[in-house]
Design a protein around this nucleic acid. Sequence first.
DNA 1: TAATATGGTTTGCGTCACAAACTAGTTTTT
DNA 2: AAAAACTAGTTTGTGACGCAAACCATATTA
Lengths: 105, 105
Amino acid sequence: MSRSAGNGHNGTLDPLIHESSRLMIISVLNEGPWMEFGFVLTTTGLTKGNLSTHMARLVAAGYVEEWKEFVDRKPRTSYRLTRRGREAFRHYQKTWRQLTGGKMR
Amino acid sequence: MSRSAGNGHNGTLDPLIHESSRLMIISVLNEGPWMEFGFVLTTTGLTKGNLSTHMARLVAAGYVEEWKEFVDRKPRTSYRLTRRGREAFRHYQKTWRQLTGGKMR
DNA sequence: TAATATGGTTTGCGTCACAAACTAGTTTTT
DNA sequence: AAAAACTAGTTTGTGACGCAAACCATATTA
């Protein structure tokens, strides 16, 4: 198999991270440890539906970890970046800077 | 009319620029003045079809200027960023850095 | 004149991001 | 105690769009 996934360490922008909404989400999660759904919701300004589905994809990709619990009899969902997620984000940032910085340098 | 286009000077990433292929194209065009189709083609690694349609969109948006001529009896198409295009790209870069750099700084 | 190359454009399909509708349970109101 | 409204998300329907493949027009070579 030839190494050329959407994310890998080739010079392409991981689409899972690059998509605007998810870029916002990941940038927020990158600033700290566990964050609640509601916090990410208001910080990013996304709708609940979209936040929910984007989160599901990030979890499925192993970039984000999900924690569900009941607090005061109500459900509470929290997220944090996994190590893989943080690394992927770092790599994405590096790639973006190279790309937009010009081929020759 | 309330200023909130896809590109405007609000804190969102202009989708016309943010899309990976076009981000590559614009980054390349940003490095110089007129560039030929074939050059952009090999530099970005896109297929001809996709390059063609992306260029059409960028031209339609007023971000890129198109120049068609015949050289040695063969068609030649060249492109360059317009002033608006360069400005939009600068603004995009600024926005991206703010966004991914964290809310608090 | 048939094949091959050059320089693109157009088309069809599959993915996916978004808003809207829905689910499940809790608290408040009447 | 039933209904209404609120909390905390999840699921669904659909339009937009990015991609590869097919196509077109002209020029060159065999």
